[in-house]
Amino acid sequence: MVHCRILGHRYRFSTEGETMTWRCQRGCGAAGSKRYPTAADADRYAAAFDREDSADLGRRAPLVGLLPLRVVRAVRALRGRRAND
């Protein structure tokens, strides 16, 4: 699928007992699984991996597209450190 080749896969994670499974949301067929010692471990990892990073936009921004946002955050952090000194 072209979207996955250009933008990367968009995995969604779920659990079935001790097994965490993932599939590409775009339907390209990319999938996998991993078995953990307990179902609680599998649930914990699936919950951690199955989230959108839109809340962190700018903190871990790509260098090219969102560089201005990354620079603004860095400048604000620097100013905050200087004010606290």
Rank of each mutant, 00 (worst) to 15 (best):
L78F: 14
R73C: 05
H9L: 00
D50E: 07
R5A: 10
G58F: 03
P68E: 07
A42Q: 00
G8L: 05
R51F: 01
K34H: 15
T15H: 00
L69Y: 04
E18P: 08
A31L: 05
P62E: 06
V2C: 05
S54T: 11
G29E: 03
P37I: 06
T19K: 02
L66N: 10
G58W: 02
R60T: 15
G29T: 02
R82D: 10
R79C: 09
T15D: 01
R60V: 14
R35L: 03
V64R: 12
V72P: 01
E52W: 05
E16I: 01
L69H: 04
H3A: 13
A77H: 13
R35Y: 01
S33M: 06
R12E: 08
P68L: 06
C24H: 00
V71Y: 09
D85P: 03
S14Q: 03
R23I: 00
V75G: 03
R10Y: 06
C24R: 02
V72H: 11
N84C: 09
R26M: 11
R35M: 05
A83K: 14
R44E: 11
R79T: 10
P62M: 02
G8R: 03
Y11T: 06
A46W: 02
H9A: 07
C28N: 04
D43E: 15
D56P: 04
A74D: 12
N84R: 15
D53Y: 06
Y36R: 04
C28M: 10
V71C: 04
G17Y: 01
R23P: 01
R44L: 13
E52R: 06
G65H: 12
R10G: 05
R51E: 10
E18Y: 00
R82I: 15
